[in-house]
Design a binder for these strands. Sequence first.
DNA 1: GTGCTTAACGAACGGCGTTCGTTACGAACA
DNA 2: TGTTCGTAACGAACGCCGTTCGTTAAGCAC
Lengths: 249, 249
Amino acid sequence: MVDRKERGEGEVPAPPWRRSRKPPQPRRQLSQDLIIDTGLRILDAEGFDALSMRRVAQELDTGPASLYAHVAGKEELLELIYDRVLGEIRLPERDPARWKEQLRAYAMEAHRVLGAHADVARAALATIPTGENSIRAGEFLFGLLIEAGMAPREASVAMDRLSLYIVGDAYEASLHYARMRAAGMDDPEAYFRSFVGQIAGYYRAIPPERFPYVVKHVDDLIADDGEQRFRYGLDLILDGIEARMPRDP
Amino acid sequence: MVDRKERGEGEVPAPPWRRSRKPPQPRRQLSQDLIIDTGLRILDAEGFDALSMRRVAQELDTGPASLYAHVAGKEELLELIYDRVLGEIRLPERDPARWKEQLRAYAMEAHRVLGAHADVARAALATIPTGENSIRAGEFLFGLLIEAGMAPREASVAMDRLSLYIVGDAYEASLHYARMRAAGMDDPEAYFRSFVGQIAGYYRAIPPERFPYVVKHVDDLIADDGEQRFRYGLDLILDGIEARMPRDP
DNA sequence: GTGCTTAACGAACGGCGTTCGTTACGAACA
DNA sequence: TGTTCGTAACGAACGCCGTTCGTTAAGCAC
């Protein structure tokens, strides 16, 4: 069956069972890095729910199957994206004398980075920290606590709890972010006000004889924003760690 | 190809265009409660990923569409299940003099309940607490802190951070549970040992010149189990709160 | 130039949440 | 008692999803 292409009059179409010899495709060059970048871009721009293997593939002008040569699956992709974001965390030289200050600075920096890539936190909690940057952060925290005088075994748990707090808070924040997006808004400020208003209205409507404190202090329940809450909880934890440092005061 | 059922020879099937007048269906009686119960049962038995609208419907011998008369969608179903589980938390009479003790007991009780329904925590973080039982718990914590002398505005944040810690920890634990299930195991003890072994092996294989503390103290990093870690972090937070109670020391 | 490894790919599978339009039950009403 | 009617139940379908299979073709070693 010869198919003559290009302006031959009365061109006979190739029979359907004869698969066309493929138009000259340039064959995109994929790589794990490229896939991670693309995934992160989608995550930032459209949110966690929009991130799918198909969506990534589409962005790269290919089919979903092509990704599997570079990435084991969606879960691994999420872990890789997470570790890439962790790489944005800047770590100072360790200075054990100022351990508390440095621990706070680390937490705020991590909080900032996870906030900048809001939905990455949704991938974070699902992950066991085995990436390069994850270990890098772990070494920093672990080393800092040990050098400050804490026993390694205790330092391990303290580091773990601090990390859980940071990621847990970021996760919660990302859910609000998702709700905002779902509501079609894009100004966090406006969303915060509308959300807080809704909650306040709801709380004010519940029976005060059963839940007197909640109803009475609605305004206090919604007073602080995410940033202030994060700092408060962070200080709780840091003070607790300080109290456990040997020979501190 | 006629398949004649059960010894009635040559039974003529109804013509396809004549829709059968419906066999006498009892028409199951659905209800929101029944749906929540079923969902929780699936969650406990098969895990978060197994919970789907279709799976719930199948369990109730119906189609997924039938559920939507009682439940707005999957998200609402998850919130309802979560609130139901919160209902299992037993709350004591408030005794402000023993606020710290009661706060710890609450945390351990909540931890226990969320542990008993492992994957519910996966639904919990995604939820904004508006359920009856959620408010009940909030009223308890909020009231306890205020009666113990904390300003309502600060009590609000402290309660929020404590709750985040409890749920965040449960969420993390549930992910390990899911991994265990995915690995085909069903003994948490055995899983814990195998998991810890893997992590230890991995950490021991990383370059010690770059990550000296992590490599040197691998054994300390994997020493404590989830229960011990939870208590440690809980005490960090409670001590921090105590330090902020007016005229306490 | 030839063989071989392997990235890229098209198509399909089974599952998902949700919606649409229809059916028939049971209560309200005549 | 007979009829109407709101609505729970439902079957089917839509448009997604993650992943796998088998094929194709590009680039490299020889």
